[in-house]
Computed example of a mutant assay.
Amino acid sequence: MSKLRLRKAQKGILLALTLFLLSIFFDLIGYADIGKYTLYLTMVVIIYNMFNAAIFVSNSNKKFFKRIKNKQPIFTDSLTDDESDDSIK
């Protein structure tokens, strides 16, 4: 995974964990409604991160199978390069 994708995934995981802990905190102090909404927001963040991971895997698989078809070396650093990926810029 490239550094850009790795940082993006780390921020998403940290945000989801923070929201999850906030929902537990709000439930414990008696604000169950706010805790429920932050839990819903946590699920949205997790689904968004999964969607971005699916795009990354799909792009890597395209490069992987193109290299198999052209009989090129498969596992190089350029398999996960994001310089040619316009979807993240």
Rank of each mutant, 00 (worst) to 15 (best):
S2T: 03
K3Q: 15
R7P: 07
A9Q: 01
A9I: 00
L14D: 01
L14S: 04
A16R: 01
L17N: 03
L19V: 03
L19Y: 02
F20A: 08
F20V: 04
L21I: 10
L21T: 11
L21V: 10
L22C: 12
S23G: 05
I24T: 09
F26E: 07
F26V: 09
D27A: 06
I29R: 11
G30L: 07
G30T: 02
G30V: 05
A32C: 10
D33T: 15
G35S: 13
K36F: 15
T38K: 02
Y40T: 14
L41F: 14
L41Y: 08
T42L: 01
M43Y: 04
V44E: 00
I46R: 00
I47D: 00
I47R: 01
Y48L: 03
N49D: 01
N49K: 00
N49T: 00
N49V: 00
M50F: 11
M50R: 07
F51C: 05
A53W: 04
A53D: 04
A54L: 12
A54S: 14
V57S: 09
S58W: 13
N59P: 01
N59V: 10
N59I: 12
S60W: 08
N61Q: 15
N61L: 15
F64H: 08
K66T: 12
I68P: 02
K69N: 09
K69E: 13
N70Y: 04
Q72H: 09
T76I: 08
T76F: 04
D77L: 15
S78T: 14
D81A: 09
S84Y: 06
D85L: 09
S87L: 11
S87H: 08
S87D: 10
S87C: 08
I88M: 10
I88G: 06
